[in-house]
Design a protein around this nucleic acid. Sequence first.
DNA 1: CTATTGACGACAT
DNA 2: CATGTCGCCAATA
Length: 104
Amino acid sequence: MVKITEFELKAIKALKRIPRGKITTYQEIAKYIGRPRAARAVGNALHKNPWAPAYPCHRVVEFNGELGGYAGGVKKKIGLLKKEGTLLTKGKISNFTKKLFIFK
DNA sequence: CTATTGACGACAT
DNA sequence: CATGTCGCCAATA
């Protein structure tokens, strides 16, 4: 039984739109769901997300290219990203803006 | 309703 | 470049 709000549902569904090998930011998701300034709320939604391992939440990073956080640990997040072709440099995304995926 | 918290973001120092 | 502070939004106690 999973009980969540529409806000969280939209945030989670947005994750599935991210193509493999690309990433997006909390702010982009926030904008996509209609609350461009709710980046924090989006982060909260993903963190509390009951299906955490079932969604590519590791493809969501901060606006400045840092990883932010991850339910399983940032180390894991880095590993997953590298495995998908997203290279990291000093804990940040390499060519961050080029790999960034914008919802439309 | 108010206060606290959090996987953010922008700006100030 | 590192640290601190404020603003934003939603969930929870």
